[in-house]
């Protein structure tokens, strides 16, 4: 019940979704569409679970007055505020979209913009041509960096960067794509037949 049941369910569902690709059977197609719908519900609730975990984590910090609990108050207040205003004013108008436009979006964008500074600093301190391969990586990086902006185009670097992107880069990415693709397929088969169970957690 605890271990075999989920594996049997997985086998049945996985097989249904697999054979649907090879059969025009209407009943199978209808059940396949049902499974796609159910999956969306499960996925949504899983995401809600993540938010509940976040809430519980910060709530416990506040209860125990752990270090930095004041910041947890900010997080919990922000979370509850958004839910309450969505319920009172609806998610389409009022404070809910306003908070998204003027609080969440600019802060999220800025958080990622910080990375521009760190990437520049790392380029200065750590990007070294210590070996042939490292030099190759560095040269390709510099050519693509300059070739993909107007300044590099003024000196014709776009042709070299396009060549790098269209040939050696394409080959590299394709090699990775095929390699990872083969790995995905073999893992998926192992999941369906029940050999791979680690995703079910400890004791499965």
């Amino acid at each position: 019940m605890k271990k075999t049941g989920p594996v049997i369910l997985g086998f049945l569902v996985g097989t249904l979704m697999l054979i649907q690709f090879f059969t025009p059977n209407e009943w199978i197609e209808a059940r396949y569409n049902n499974v796609l719908d159910w999956k969306q519900v499960v996925f949504g609730i899983t995401l809600i679970l993540g938010v509940i975990s976040l809430f519980v984590y910060h709530w416990k910090k506040i209860e125990k007055r752990s270090e930095g609990w004041g910041y947890s108050v900010v997080t919990v207040a922000g979370l509850l505020f958004m839910i309450v205003v969505a319920l009172i004013f609806s998610p389409e108008r009022g404070p809910y979209p306003w908070m998204f436009d003027h609080v969440q979006a600019p802060m999220q964008a800025t958080m990622f913009a910080l990375l521009a500074f760190y990437v520049a600093s790392a380029s200065y301190r750590a990007f070294r041509a210590r070996s042939f391969h490292a030099a190759l990586l560095l040269i390709a990086g510099v050519v693509v960096m300059l070739g993909r902006v107007p300044l590099g185009e003024l000196i014709g670097l776009q042709h070299v960067s396009s060549w790098i992107l269209d040939y050696p880069n394409l080959a590299a990415k394709r090699g990775i794509l095929i390699g990872v693709g083969l790995g995905m397929v073999s893992t998926a088969i192992k999941i369906i037949v029940g050999i791979e169970r680690t995703y079910l957690g400890k004791g499965a």
Binding site: S123, R128, L151, G152
Partner: peptide, 24 residues
């Protein structure tokens, strides 16, 4: 944004060059 993009890329390339010349 393209002018700023160009200048920032140029600067980062200069950073990389300085770092590597110093390293060598």
């Amino acid at each position: 944004g393209m002018d700023a993009q160009s200048m920032a890329h140029l600067l980062i390339v200069v950073f990389i060059l300085i770092g590597n010349v110093a390293f060598l």
